[in-house]
Design a protein around this nucleic acid. Structure first.
Lengths: 240, 240
DNA sequence: TACAAATATGTACTTGAAACACATTAACCG
DNA sequence: CGGTTAATGTGTTTCAAGTACATATTTGTA
C-alpha cells in the first residue's frame, strides 16, 4: 500500500529518499477542551507521562487510527476523556514542526471544543485530568502552548459572530452569566446595557419566563439558546 | 522510531491495532495557488496522472518529506511549480477523510497562496500546468474541489481585513485595478467612491505620483503597497 | 424599614457603512 | 480642432450600528 501512494505522487526527487521514510510520520489530533467555572475559562489538561516533559501538563491527544477520520479521532478523544457526546468541535490548525515530539515525527491537528463543565454526564477518565484557568497557564509539554494559543485566538474571532459560547453554559442561564463568559473569553469588560441590546438583536435567546434562584441579590430572568441554533450546533459535529 | 512514538501515546486500546498500521498514513500538502488575470481569479491546476481521475485536474501537492516542516513543504511545492520565492502562503485546513485518496490513506493540509500571474520570474514547471478561472471549475480530482472552496472561503474572510490582495497585483497598480480584484474575489460589485474612501482610510497605499499609461481612457494615479506592510507579508512566510 | 446591589430599560452621541452627484481629465472621432 | 465619451477624482446626505451614559425597579440584608 505505501508504495502505491508514493507512486501516485511521482516526483523527480523521490529516489533520493527511502520509500519507508515517508511513512515515518505519525498523525495525531490534540483537543483543546474548554469549560467555564468561577468566572474563568478553563482548559482540560493531563500530566504528561513523557520523561522529557516531566512535571508539565499537556493537551489531550492521541494518534489517529488507520480506520478513522480526523474529526472522528478528535471526537473519540473527547468522548473517552469526558464521556460527553454532543459537544461543539472545530478544527483549527495543523502543527508539523520537525522537533515538536521528542520520540519522532508527529504531525498533529488541533481541535477546540466547548462544554459545560458542570454537565451531569461529565466523567473525567483519569485522576491526572484537571481543569486549569487558561490565563494562568505557563509552559505546556510539546508545542501545546502554541496550540492552545491558536485555539483561543480562533475562539475569540468566532465568539461574537456565532453562537458557540452557549456550549459552555448550562441549559438555563441569565444574561449576567452570559456576559461573564464573554468577558472571560475576550478579556475585556463589556457594558451591560449595550451587551443586552446586542444579544437581543441576534435572536439567539429564548426567554424562559423563569427567574434565577439562590442568588444573593435580585434574581434575573433565565434564558436558553434558540432551539434551532442548538440543533445546528449539533449538526456540525455528527461524526460517528 | 515508530515504536517509540506509539509508546509515547500509550492508550488502552493500542494492542488491538498493529503498530505498523499507525504509520500507514501518509502526510501531504496541497497548494491552492491563486492569480489574477482578465478580471478573473484563477487557480493553478495540473492534469491528474492517476487513472482513477483521468481527465480531471488537481491542485498542486506532494508528500511531506521526512525532513521538512509542513510550511516548508508547501513552500517547496510553490517554488518547484512556479519558480517564485516571495509569495504569501497561509495554512487553511487539514483534510483526512478515509477514502480521499484512491491509493491509500493520505492526510493533506491545504495552503493557499496569492501571486502575480504576470510576474517576470514566474516559470511554470510543467506543460500540463494551467490557470483556470475559479468560478468555472466543476469537478476536480480527489476532494480538491472541497479544498479549493475552503481556501476561497478563507480568502474572502481575510481579504477585507488584511492587505493580502496586493500579492495578486503587479508592483504598481491603479485603484480601478485594485477594486476589480476585490470584486472578482468577493463576487460583488463595489461602489467606486465608497471603495476609494475605505482603502484610503487604511493606510495600505502609497501614492507613486505616476499615472497609468496605455489605457484607452483617462489615466488614473498609480499606487504601490505600503513598504512596511509588504515586509510584514514577506516575514510571515520566511521558511527556508 | 432603610440601604445595598443587582436587574431592566431607555436616550443622546459618535462612528462607520451605503446611497448618491458632480466636476475634471484624457482619448477618440468626425 | 472641438465636441463627445468614458473614465478619474472628490464630495454630501442618509441610515444603521456601536458607544457612552442615567434612572427606575426589585430583591436580599442589616
Amino acid at each position: 500500500m505505501p508504495e502505491r501512494i508514493i507512486k501516485a505522487f511521482k516526483n523527480a526527487e523521490i529516489e533520493k529518499i527511502s520509500h519507508l521514510d515517508y511513512f515515518n510520520i505519525a498523525v495525531s489530533v490534540d483537543c483543546v477542551i474548554l469549560g467555564y467555572e468561577d468566572k474563568q475559562l478553563k482548559v482540560l489538561l493531563i500530566k504528561s507521562d513523557l520523561e522529557e516533559f516531566s512535571g508539565l501538563n499537556s493537551l489531550l491527544g492521541d494518534l489517529v487510527r488507520p480506520d478513522e477520520d480526523l474529526d472522528e479521532a478528535s471526537y473519540r478523544i473527547l468522548r473517552e476523556r469526558t464521556g460527553l457526546n454532543d459537544v461543539y468541535l472545530e478544527q483549527v490548525q495543523t502543527f508539523g514542526r520537525l522537533d515538536r515530539h521528542p520520540s519522532g515525527r508527529v504531525v498533529t491537528t488541533a481541535y477546540f471544543s466547548l462544554l459545560d463543565l458542570h454537565h451531569h454526564q461529565l466523567r473525567l477518565s483519569h485522576n491526572d485530568l484537571h481543569w486549569h484557568p487558561v490565563h494562568k497557564i505557563g509552559k505546556l509539554a510539546f508545542d501545546h502552548k502554541d496550540i492552545l494559543d491558536s485555539c483561543l485566538h480562533r475562539l475569540r474571532q468566532q465568539v461574537l459572530e456565532r453562537p458557540l459560547i452557549f456550549s459552555l453554559l448550562p441549559e438555563k442561564f441569565s444574561l449576567r452569566q452570559l456576559q461573564e463568559v464573554y468577558e472571560s473569553i475576550l478579556g475585556t469588560e463589556l457594558d451591560r446595557r449595550n451587551f443586552r441590546k446586542k444579544v437581543s438583536l441576534k435572536d439567539w435567546l429564548v426567554d424562559l419566563g423563569e427567574m434565577e434562584t439562590d442568588v444573593p441579590h435580585r434574581p434575573g430572568k433565565l434564558y436558553k439558546l434558540n432551539p434551532t441554533l442548538k440543533k445546528r450546533l449539533r449538526a456540525r459535529l455528527r461524526v460517528s
